[in-house]
């Protein structure tokens, strides 16, 4: 694993404001993610996990603090430039799968490549390869509503990694899955992490998944309260 940081935050603050109420979600988060890390962000509901992932993914803007992705300061980017950065450098896996219902599994997987302007033949080949790796190539021509939740989430993972982004951000990817499927999904993500040196950061509150990560960041009330590198686990797996 490289110690080269992919993503870094400095005193990251996010406060949600309504007319009369200010709700702090993050209260000064300093985090550095290195290339190839397989990191979980854990914490109870309302601890700021999803908010952190949204900010890191450029889907939302912080109230204060900075985020750097491969040295690029996200707050300096326009909305369009941020879209382009997400497309080129970040893969997303969402809790509710969020596949595009009118596209087949293969088309959903290749969608990000299409947005990037990759030629049809190449994007199909790359999408098929990753679907094969995740064991769902047989569903390539099915529409999402014809496959199970676990399979849909695998497709979402395939979509997130197919374009080989700098980092994959997964927000509670197993929240809607049973425990067996959840573990299988995390193992698949771990496999992609080790085979492709893909950097993963996923939010979860499922304690059973945490012994599979190389690093565990625990959030409470918008602050990092623990940051553990699971070297032992990695060594044991090796």
């Amino acid at each position: 694993m490289s110690t080269n940081p992919v993503m870094r935050t400095e005193k990251l603050v996010k406060t949600y404001k309504t007319a009369s109420v200010e709700t702090p979600a993050l209260r000064g988060v300093d985090l550095e993610l290195c290339r190839g890390e397989f990191t979980a962000v854990a914490g109870p509901s309302g601890s700021g996990k999803s908010t952190l992932l949204h900010l890191l993914g450029g889907l939302d803007r912080p109230t204060a603090g900075e985020i750097y992705l491969d040295g690029v300061l996200l707050s300096s980017l326009s909305r369009d430039a941020l879209s382009r950065l997400r497309l080129d450098r970040i893969g997303f896996v969402f809790q509710a799968y969020n596949l595009i219902p009118v596209l087949t599994v293969l088309e959903n997987t290749a969608f990000v490549l299409e947005l990037r302007g990759v030629a049809l033949r190449e994007r199909i080949a790359r999408a098929r390869k990753i679907l094969g790796e995740l064991g769902i190539e047989k569903y390539a021509n099915q529409f999402p509503n014809r496959i199970s939740g676990g399979e849909q989430q695998r497709v979402a993972v395939a979509r997130a990694v197919v374009a080989e982004p700098a980092i994959v951000l997964a927000d509670e990817p197993t929240a809607n899955l049973d425990s067996k499927t959840s573990l299988e999904l995390i193992d698949l993500m771990r496999h992609l992490n080790s085979e492709h040196a893909a950097t993963f950061l996923f939010a979860t509150h499922d304690a059973r998944l945490l012994d599979r990560v190389s690093r565990l960041v625990t959030l409470e009330d918008g602050r990092i309260v623990r940051d553990e590198h699971r070297v032992k686990l990695a060594a044991a797996r090796a």
Partner: peptide
């Protein structure tokens, strides 16, 4: 709306 949000989140431009 949700689907369009996903498309935007994945990096689709506003023009797209």
């Amino acid at each position: 709306t949700r689907e369009l949000g996903v498309v935007l989140a994945l990096g689709a431009s506003r023009r797209r």
